[in-house]
């Protein structure tokens, strides 16, 4: 009588395909995130200077971009369909025309990232940027309201 081959009994493969598929889906998700998401957004925003300079070179280009800067104090004007304000990085300014309600933490001096595009053909020194989304870029500083900000 021949010994039954141990290997046959030892290796039941009931759910093999399921886990291979699951692993494949995870690999696909990783690829999608890196290629589809990250590669286009690795530079998440342009500073106002970079954005305005690029717009000056190609004023008819209305490609979407994110523009980062601080809300110039006193420049905020509420409108029925949104808000306008000046965004600055200290050296360069752009006027932002935002459609929709600004976020809760939007205020004078707030560091913002605006998503949208420059107005086509706008050759003004302070060009207008059409925005449909405002994000707030917070610093990593946390403190109770009572602590003096100037330290």
């Amino acid at each position: 009588m021949i010994d039954p081959p141990v290997v046959l009994v030892a290796r039941p493969k009931p759910k093999r395909m399921r886990y291979i598929v699951a692993g494949g889906l995870c690999a696909a998700a990783v690829l999608f995130l890196i290629v589809g998401g990250l590669s286009r957004n690795i530079v998440y925003f342009r500073t106002v200077s970079e954005g305005v300079t690029a717009h000056g070179k190609a004023p008819d280009d209305t490609g979407r971009l994110r523009l980062a800067g601080a809300v110039l104090t006193g420049s905020v004007e509420r409108r029925p369909d949104g808000v306008t304000f000046v965004v600055t990085d200290g050296t360069t300014r752009a006027r932002v025309l935002h459609h929709g309600d600004p976020p809760e933490l939007f205020k004078d001096g707030a560091p913002v990232v605006c998503e949208g595009h420059f107005v086509k053909g706008d050759r003004a020194a302070v060009p207008t940027f059409d925005s449909d989304r405002i994000m707030i870029k917070h610093g990593a500083e946390y403190r109770p309201p009572s602590v003096d900000a100037s330290k």
Partner: peptide, 20 residues
């Protein structure tokens, strides 16, 4: 605090990559 649920920035996306 950001005004968005999700940002396609390097930190968020690399963390999602870590998960998968």
């Amino acid at each position: 605090v950001w005004n968005v649920w999700w940002a396609w920035d390097a930190r968020v996306v690399s963390t999602a990559v870590l998960f998968f």
